[in-house]
């Protein structure tokens, strides 16, 4: 079997007639951590939304292969069932829908799709306990409505908690660090690092280098105006921190 988890080729998308992703290429293999950095508005969240299956975007060209599937043909829930996870930059509040109840539903629907057994109440609770400890999610928050009244940091922890519960093959973390103080950042990064495995991969989207002190990437890519304009190792992030993005824009290879 191939080592590739996701392979994005020449991906272009539009929203309301405006092109946002303008021919993006990216390949992520098992065991790897990729960081995507780039200025505000460069298309980072758009990329994650498109990969997760949000319908607002029109894909005008390109292909995405995810573990041998044509990702763009799948519904958002099928993408999840096959192992894709997106931790949102702005997790929504869902009044009246219990955090753990919906997760149990999600797990069971996935298991049904994969023709696996339903998870027992006991196993589920044990799992909730283990994973919430991993990310330091307050006990009370688990049973509350999804994200309702959570602080910014609590919402991000809840995202990582859900990630831990769903055990995805590819996790995309969209600015999970924004809005976190340094302690929370450490806990969240610890969580991510503990979930790291040779079979899985992570894409970390951020525009601060500081997260990458905790989650050390194998590759760093710079996204600018809808394209990856530079790739390198973790030192690229340090250079970006020091010099900003502008130095890149002048020597973009044509």
């Amino acid at each position: 079997m191939s080592d590739t988890i996701i392979k994005i080729k020449n991906l272009r998308c539009e929203v309301e007639g405006q092109e946002i992703l303008k021919g993006l290429d990216l390949e992520v293999k098992k065991g790897e951590i990729h960081a995507i950095m780039g200025p505000n508005g460069s298309g980072k969240s758009t990329l994650s939304s498109v990969l997760a299956g949000k319908e607002d975007y029109e894909i005008t060209s390109g292909t995405v292969d995810f573990l041998g599937n044509d990702l763009l043909e799948l519904s958002p829930e099928e993408r999840s069932w096959k192992g894709l996870f997106l931790a949102f930059q702005y997790p929504v509040e869902i009044p009246g829908v219990s955090n753990v109840n919906f997760l149990r539903t999600a797990l069971n629907e996935r298991n049904k799709f994969l023709e696996k057994e339903q998870i027992s109440a006991k196993d589920f609770l044990a799992m909730v306990k283990e994973k919430s400890e991993l990310v330091g999610l307050n006990n009370k928050l688990k049973n509350r409505s999804v994200n309702e009244g959570f602080s910014g940091g609590e919402k991000k922890r809840n995202e990582i908690f859900q990630m831990a519960m769903l055990e995805p093959k590819l996790s995309i973390l969209d600015e999970t660090d924004s809005g976190l103080d340094i302690d929370a950042l450490k806990i969240v990064s610890d969580g991510v690092n503990q979930l790291k495995s040779s079979e899985k991969a992570t894409i970390v989207i951020t525009h601060y280098q500081r997260l990458l002190d905790y989650i050390v990437p194998d590759f760093v890519h710079v996204l600018s105006d809808g394209k990856i304009i530079k790739s390198g190792d973790k030192n690229l992030a340090l250079k970006l921190e020091e010099k900003g993005y502008d130095w890149l824009k002048t020597d973009v290879p044509v």
Binding site: A52, G53, K54, E55, S75, P76, E77, R79, S80, W81, F85, L86, F88, P91, V92, I94, G96, V97, F102, L103, T105, A106, L107, E109, R110, V146, Q162, L166
Partner: peptide, 17 residues
């Protein structure tokens, strides 16, 4: 979309909401 992206099917997600 949030619920679906976590693996809740479309119909179930509507019901939950």
């Amino acid at each position: 979309f949030y619920l679906k992206s976590r693996g809740v099917s479309s119909n179930t997600a509507k019901k939950l909401l």
